[in-house]
Amino acid sequence: MHDHDRRDNDTGIVPAISLPVLLAGIVLPFCLVIGGCLALQAFRMALFGIPLEMIWMFACFILVPACLTVCWNMSPPGPDGKQVK
């Protein structure tokens, strides 16, 4: 085990933030988690003894990485001057 793994050959550049990236990366996860859970909480229903809002929260453990993956693919790092080095 080394401090830096061998596949760790990232460019060291972070892409600038755009509106679609913000929507996919921040707004959508917050809406899914907070909005979805609070909406389902109002139904006061359970599946196999587990409240629906908790099941949705557990599903968000997959949905949020999906949103961030979309976000990652929308913003490949390039050499333009807007990027943060």
């Binding site: 990366g25 907070i34 909480q41 453990f61 949020v64 943060v84």
Partner: peptide, 28 residues
Amino acid sequence: GSGFGLWFLGYILLSYPVGYFLNPRVWA
């Protein structure tokens, strides 16, 4: 009950999208 789970899991989970944007810039 589940209300506790909502905020407890919610803040940890949503810290990752926040960190996605914030952390690389703090690193910079």
